[in-house]
Amino acid sequence: MEGLKLYTVKKVEIVVGGEHLKFVKTLLDDVRVSGYTIIPNVSGKGHSGFHEGHLMFNDVNTLVMVITVVPENWVETILSGLTPLFERYSGVVFVSDVQVSRREYFGEDPKGS
């Protein structure tokens, strides 16, 4: 793998109740992220209890995970949009470093905006 340069960007992972998926999607659209991945029917346990992943006749009461990759200076914008949500409802968000080779693809402006 010669000549392959990797750039560090940020990965943001958000786990929320299914009923708030629309909120998260709209927020990410607002921020104009390059894209996101949705993992539905996630199960898990949190402060309030256990969530089963797959309910046959209910799309709304399960957990869902949204993953997106953005340049570093966008993270704060995303988090400021999520803060009001987590003030009231349960959910988690993780930010970690991740590397990609196509920096422009994920929203990084080569001029560094």
Binding site: T26, L27, D30, R32, N73, T77, S80, L85, R88
Partner: peptide
Amino acid sequence: MDPLFFLPEDPERRHAVIDVRSRIRLA
């Protein structure tokens, strides 16, 4: 893409706009 929504260039304004949109959605 939402034709009705403009995201300002200035990062401070951008934060403010996104923040208020979040709060509206929560309301």
